[in-house]
Each structure stands twice: as C-alpha cells, then as structure tokens.
Amino acid sequence: MTITGGIDVGAGTVKGVLIEDGLRIVTSDKLKTGALPSKASEQVLEHLLGDAGIAREQLDYLVATGFGRTQLRDRDLQVTDITCNGRGATFLFPNTRSILDMGAQTTRGIRVDESGRVTRFKLNDRCAAGSGRFIERVARALETDLDTVVHHALQGTAPTTISSVCAVLGESEVINHLAAGHRIEDILMGLHLSIGERSIMLLRQVKAEPELTLTGGMVNNKAMIKALRTLLDQHINVHPNGELAAAIGAALLAKQRHERIREGDGALGGPRAPGVPLLEAPAASCAIGSR
C-alpha cells in the first residue's frame, strides 16, 4: 500500500489530502493560510498524519502546490497549481477537458487531455478583480461576512452591472450603487456576474471544451455557481471536494513520482553517489545554505 500526500498552500486557505494507492482519499484537512503559510501548511500536514495514524516517514511522498508551495519544508517536491489542478479535476470528474480554477488570489482557465495533462492554460494576472479576494473585500466594505454576501446575491433578480476591472475601483462602484438606491441583492449578484465574465474570458482563451469542472475555493460559493451557469448556459461539474482539487492532484502526482523513483528515475532515483539512500528519513541538519 502506498500513501502519498498533497498540500495546496493557497493564498486564502491551505488544503491537504492523503491518498491511498492513488485511488482513495484517506483524509483531508484545511486551514486559513494567515500570515504564516509555512506554519499553516505544517499544521495541515500534522493533522493529516494524525488522522491517518502514520508518521512522516511512513508517508511515501509529499507534493506541495499553491502560491506558497516552497514554504512547506517537509515536501519532497513542489509542483505548480496548474499541473495539480489538471490531475485533481480529472480524478473528481474523469471526463473533464476544461477547468475553471477560482481561488482567493488567482483564477485560471485550463485545458487538459484525457489523462489530466495540461495542454493550455491562462491566468488572471494576479488582479483581485477576477478572484475570490474581490468578494471578500466587498464583504468587508459592507461590514458583513462571505456567507451573508452569497445569501443576498442568490436573492438578486435584476443584477446591477459592475463594470470596473479593478478590485479597488469595483469596491467603490458597489458603494456608489448602494448610494444610488440599488438593492443590495442585485448589486451582489452583479458582482458575482462581473467576476464570472472575467473568468469565462480565460476559458475562451484556452478554447475550453466540455466537460467543464469548477475547482478552487469558489466551489463553495453557490452564487458564483449560479452566475457561471447563467453566463455559460452549460453544465458545470461541481464536486464537494472541488476545493481540494489541487491538493488531490498533488497527491496523485506524488504517487507517480514515488513509483518512478522506485524504478530509478530522477535526481534521487538516478545516478548518485554510493551510499546515498533513496528518500532517507529526516536526520540532524547542518547543511550549508539549504532551505
């Protein structure tokens, strides 16, 4: 039996999973990233190992992904979120050919082949106006929480247009609409449609084809799912574990690398000095300059 792990150190949340033999999710966990991504990711790892009742040495391979992937010291490898999302979404929905990954900081349109390998991708160039952070900013400006924003947005019947492409200006626009007497429900649904439209532009740029799978933290936002379905007029795969897609993909890639290394591939499995064990257990460290 092989147990591999994936930890997605996201801008808003750290997500982690352990997977058995690349087939079954053994356990999962998530925590707010906060100001110390390294600490949050180590805590998630600790929880995962505790839940599974295993020590780090018994975890066969661990891949870190997400914006803070290099912050997890105990990783075996870091892999970009794009590659991990491709594998994770295909694990959740095997017929996935396109992915819309909507996270706190970044939104990505991704095309994959039948095995989940990325063939094209496009991201929103770090502008908060196209990501979950925008909704969080608006919630803060309205002195409420995210759940309340989503609840109100779902009641919107005549969405107000939010035209600004900048999160800061967009926030002002929301306040201006409120001052002009628009219903809060319509403004908030307009906000979700605005983010949705920008995300769909990414999908067009990668020439998205069905089936489309939504991943990232936005799978928990029912208003966003409604907005996307309205805009796209097509079925969108949404899985309860969609937020974990990148972590799942990371754990699956971990399984792949673990097998390849056992076959003698790579820097660790390939030619190396005699006596250097393969993925040896942690030991006292006094390396020079290693991170």
Binding site: R75, D76, G266, L268, G270, V276, S285, C286, I288
Partner: peptide, 18 residues
C-alpha cells in the same frame, strides 16, 4: 572549514532533476 562541516551533514533530500 566548509568541507569539514559537510562531512557531518545529512539533510533529507527532495525530489528534483539534475
């Protein structure tokens, strides 16, 4: 001095390419 220190150094390796 650096070589002397390295003789006692063992760090858990990560995966990667050469």
């Amino acid at each position: 001095d650096a070589l002397g220190r390295l003789q006692h150094s063992t760090v858990r390796p990560r995966d990667g390419i050469r």
